[in-house]
Amino acid sequence: MKAKTYRIALTGLLGACAVALSYFESLLPTAAFLPPGAKPGFSNLANMFAASMLGPLPAFGIALLKAGFAALTRGGTAGLMSLCGGIFSTAVMLLLFKKDRRLGFVGIGVISAVCHNLGQLCVAAALVGNLSVLAYLPALLLFGAVAGTLTGLVCRAVLPALRRATASFRNNR
C-alpha cells in the first residue's frame, strides 16, 4: 500500500471511530451543572491520533466529520457547537504536538478537551446572545481535566503500536 493511500485509509478509520465515539457519548445523560450538549469528550481520541500521527488535513477532516454527524443527528445548533469546539481543539493540538516540548500526553489531552468545551461555550454564548453561559466554565474545566487525562493516556498507550504497524511507510511523524 502506498503511503498516501495508507494515510487516507487511516484517516477514514479514525473518522469512523470518532463518529462511533460521538454516538456513544450522546447516549450519556447530561448533568445540570454542565452546559447543554457538553459531553466528556472521549471522541477527541480520534482527533488526537490524527493530530499526532497524520497532520493538519486529516485532523481537521475528522473534526469536520464529527461536526457534520452532530448536525445531522442532533440539529444545526449541536453541529455548530461541535464544529467550533472541534476546530479550536484540533488546531491547538496540532500546534502543541508540533511545537511544544514540555507537555506530556495528559497535558495535551486536557488542554484539547478544555479547548473543545471552550469553543462550544463560545458558540452557545453567541447564539443565546449573552454571557450567562460562562457560568458553566468551572464545571467544564473540571470535566475537561478528567476526560482529557483519560484521552491522553489512551492515546499514548496505543500510539507506539500504531507507529510500529506503519513503520514501513514513509511520512510517519
Partner: peptide, 15 residues
C-alpha cells in the same frame, strides 16, 4: 512523548 510531565501537573493543578 511522555505520558505525563511536570508541566502537565501544573496545568492540571491550576485547572
Amino acid at each position: 512523548r511522555k505520558w505525563i510531565s511536570k508541566t502537565d501537573g501544573i496545568v492540571l493543578g491550576v485547572l
